[in-house]
Design a protein around this nucleic acid. Sequence first.
RNA 1: GGCGGCAUAGCCAAGUGGUAAGGCAAGGGUCUGCAAAACCUUCACCCCCAGUUCAAAUCUGGGUGCCGCCUCCA
Length: 486
Amino acid sequence: MTLTLYNTLTRRQELFEPLEPGKVRMYYCGVTVYDYCHLGHARACIIWDVVRRYLQWRGYEVRFVQNFTDIDDKILNKARQEGSSMEEVAERFIQAYFEDMGRLNIKEADEYPRATHTLDGIQRLIHELEHKGYAYPAQGDVYYAVRRFPEYGKLSGRKLEDMQAGASGRVGVEDPEASKKQEANDFALWKAAKPGEPAWESSWGAGRPGWHIECSAMVRDRLGDTIDIHAGGADLIFPHHENEIAQSEAVTGKPLANYWVHNGMVTVNGEKMSKSLGNFITIRELLDRPTDPMAIRLFVLMAQYRKPIDFTQDAIAAAQNGWNTLKEGLLFGYEYGGQLGWAVREAENPPIQNPQVERFQSAVDDDFNFAGGLAVLFELAKELRKEGNLLVHQGKTETPPQVLEQQWHTLVTLAQVLGLAAKANDEAAQPSPGLSDAEIEALIQQRQSARKAKNFAESDRIRNELQAQGITLIDQAGGVTRWHRN
RNA sequence: GGCGGCAUAGCCAAGUGGUAAGGCAAGGGUCUGCAAAACCUUCACCCCCAGUUCAAAUCUGGGUGCCGCCUCCA
């Protein structure tokens, strides 16, 4: 089976072939650290986290690099507002990033380069661009001359002539840099320091890098001239990724990345979730509501990664219900494995080959169709949940234990690929000091007597009392009452 | 104005030529003193029009609607 993915550059779905067989070099444009991450960031991080996990599961050795933009006007503004420094602000939100993403079960990248740690590489690149005639200095700034790069626009599919400056309506008509630029679409590689701003020395004078150049420099430093996969939000296609291509390829003469992949936006009431619209919800707000982190992952993975997804309370609730189903399946082995005589162990993921795995893989191989893959997990989980219920309600099941064990291992393995994990001791960890088994049995006996005497008020009282302590009674045909702790 | 994308049940969503996965929600049934739980079960001709084809949700052309980007952006 072969993996194909949609390449923004060619606007086609293509067979995935890494530069070096078996190895994948992947870069994800991370966040600018001036505030807490919101659900939109979470979506991007979850998607690329799962893509990475999937590639690894498919047998690739993946080197995954993700940057932090820690030099930026918005960080400076934030620092100014609160009377601290850019470093202080950046550091704080990097920490917050790790907390939030840790809670969402995002695996850490192999490296997290930062703009402030990449100044050498950035300056080297600007120098090379200057020498090759792609960049020009202007009053302490340095700009990229977009006209000089004939392929400018190839990623976003636009021509310079077609671009209407300020058409988005978000840009003020008077661009303070306009007088220094040769052309409106030229962009800053280096910005002269204004008084009181953090600055680095350079041959153009004290200043700081523009936004796009850091990624070109980091990719080159950490992964080489050409990488396999370059990922990011769809809103970065233009200008950010377009500019990265212009910077890197002008210098190296080689493709920056063979596959450009972009995730769709999270919307609220059909509008993009963003800081400027103020319609965002931060990850920590959402988690503290509380929302199960796995429900958030599921919410994201149920949708095709390139399409927009609309955030609503109902959608999260539906994802939570869906997760409850998967969780019951995932906990099956821990709860019933012993009873079924398995050697219950933490599920490793040894290669498994069976129809479910094949169905999962052929779905996800098709441009990361996680929703299609999830259908397999749901089928397994529902089956296991049913078997678990049979064990609770009837004390037995007709299905051979080896079959159940196999299904469970498949489910756990596939769930791990998606970063979905149910903690075995989630509830078990909570000490249940309440009633002992014997006390419960005694109460049930009392209730049975009451029922026989048709004293239903009393029998219901006992049932409610037990329920209040987290003990659910199951009245079966034939007058037998089973019970279990919730 | 330019470029790109999307349109499948109440909601989310897969399916890219052969007669509609999966999830959530909802309804019905069995069981029960009632309930809960559980189990069984029901639920779409795919935005509109025209065309290609033995056959189209799937291809082509034309509409309509929605979204993203056009130098803040995941």
